[in-house]
Design a protein around this nucleic acid. Structure first.
Lengths: 178, 178
DNA sequence: TTATAGTTTCAATAATTACCGAAAGTTTAG
DNA sequence: CTAAACTTTCGGTAATTATTGAAACTATAA
């Protein structure tokens, strides 16, 4: 087996794969899923499952599971080449589109269910008296309002062009900088 | 021991504690830490360690560790009452300030180290030739640029007043809505 | 001092989460 | 239909992460 080729490129690649995996974990994303994503992001060509298994030293089952998951997030897509039965995977390479996909999914999977619970909690204690009940109800309303705003922002951002949002953000940053 | 009091308030409280813990996990925050935070957020009065242990059914060590961690995040603070040796804990109740604290910490702990690695990776492959090297270098630059923007946004937002940011966001949403 | 009240630490253990690998399933080719 | 080439599933196991609980530590009071 071929090993050990410490070129600047391979070193930097490993460094990046490690960091992206770590960052995934910190944000509640499976480390391996993040690394598979990282590997596909930096590949000039689409990769098949075997190549990914070798590069990351993971099993077929693990590779398959995480590839499906990434497809589910809209971060990679797969296709078949004519005359080849293998499935090839390719990542979305535009960072803005990546960000939109992640926003959309996290909003759908996590923000929206949380918001429902918060609103239920607020509704269920609307007419309760007592110090504790009032404090609880007030916090539920505050949280629901804030998360609802977050939800709208993610929704809007995820539908927009980079060219619309980034300049606006830069302008806002500039305005507040002074 | 006293148990079972299914009032609307206690039910809603438990529902919220469960959901906030789950949401924490999903975003890479220890479930118990999120629940301790949730408990303090909804308490009208500051709580001591024993009360927290009872309410959440956790050990002293666990309670202590997570309380310290929350203090480190700037999400709760502790103090002593005169003539009482116990330490009491109180959460920041303003949701905007909570959000700022979380932004500040995640930026410091996670975004900034990641950005350093990305820039190193970009620098290390600046003059490499070859298809793979060029693809890698290009992606490192794209990611570094995007995360650097994220970093600036978090920094700016975390230093701003709610009253400055929220109206601006609402206006931006409205503008893009039409 | 010494006792008391409370906090912190950390080795052992439990709970959770991720991973492997092989059998079963699926699709295409001949 | 059967073989060949891949993909998917999933029970068992490994790795990681979280939690306990008791001893050590600290600070105050008497």
């Amino acid at each position: 087996m071929k090993e050990a080729k410490p070129t600047p490129l391979t070193e930097a690649r490993e460094n990046f794969l490690r960091q992206w995996g770590a960052m995934g974990s910190q944000w509640g994303i499976n480390r391996t899923m993040a690394q598979v994503h990282a590997l596909l992001m930096i590949s000039a060509e689409p990769l098949d499952t075997n190549t990914i298994m070798e590069e990351l030293q993971i099993s077929r089952g693990n590779a398959n599971t995480n590839l499906r998951e990434l497809v589910g997030w809209g971060l990679i897509r797969s296709y078949f080449l004519p005359g080849d039965r293998k499935e090839y995977f390719e990542a979305e390479k535009d960072v803005w589109k990546m960000f939109c996909a992640i926003s959309r999914e996290r909003k759908r999977r996590e923000i929206e269910p949380a918001l429902t619970v918060l609103r239920d909690c607020a509704a269920a204690t609307k007419s309760e008296k007592g110090k504790e009940a009032v404090a609880f109800h007030g916090m539920m309303e505050q949280l629901a309002e804030f998360i609802s705003l977050t939800d709208s922002v993610m929704d809007r951002v995820a539908r927009s062009e980079r060219s619309k949002v980034v300049p606006m953000v830069l302008k806002a940053l500039g305005a507040k900088m002074k």
